[in-house]
Design a protein around this nucleic acid. Sequence first.
DNA 1: GCGACAG
DNA 2: ATCTTGTCGC
Length: 228
Amino acid sequence: MENVYLNDQAVQRFVEIQQRLSKRVVLQELLDEHVNLIGGMDVTYVNDFALGVLVVLDRSLNLVSVYCSEKKVTFPYVPGLLAFRELPVLLDCFFKAKKQGQVPDIVFLDGQGIAHPRRLGIASHFGILVNLPTIGVAKKRLYGVCKNEPLLGFPEPLLDRNGDVLGYCYIPKPRASPVYISPGHLCDPESALRVTTKMFRGYKLPEPTRLAHHYTQLLRLEKLRKQQ
DNA sequence: GCGACAG
DNA sequence: ATCTTGTCGC
């Protein structure tokens, strides 16, 4: 069920959905005092299954809770269409948290926000669907260019073809490759940078996504152990 | 036509 | 993302 191929017409259908949704993305200042409960999400894969995690942290970055979900994968990985592959399992995690009355004030996702060909990376798409501020922190670049190479602790603007700032390329740790920070929804590039730089604790990734990735790997080991 | 291409 | 060991360095 994983060998799903998308022909050009199918790709175009999803691209049009993104173009329509991207008009709903709101870029605005996000105040620090509105960031108390912090969410972080990630997804891993085991054969045909996607395993998702939502971690919730308090403003001191202490872990408050972990929500997880498992879904069969029904969409292939296509650069630019990542959200259609990962959103199902992520939304399920989010709804579990919501049922517990534990909705984060902001959510960090592993991937791009508006630093995307149609300004609708997975962080923006998720933010629109749940109506929450989101920030995307990706380990690789997808779209946009930097004028210079970033230096440790000195963000370098990530620009689109018109010179508009999409986000920032940033090296949080010595000898680490940069991460790409961009606002998803209800946030702007400057706020995304300011809030995200407060989330680093000595690792390449900010605590919300780093912890989400950690729990996702634990789930993966558990899943592999059960089926062998 | 040739690269680039989140996870 | 995943497949995978050792190794350099603090």
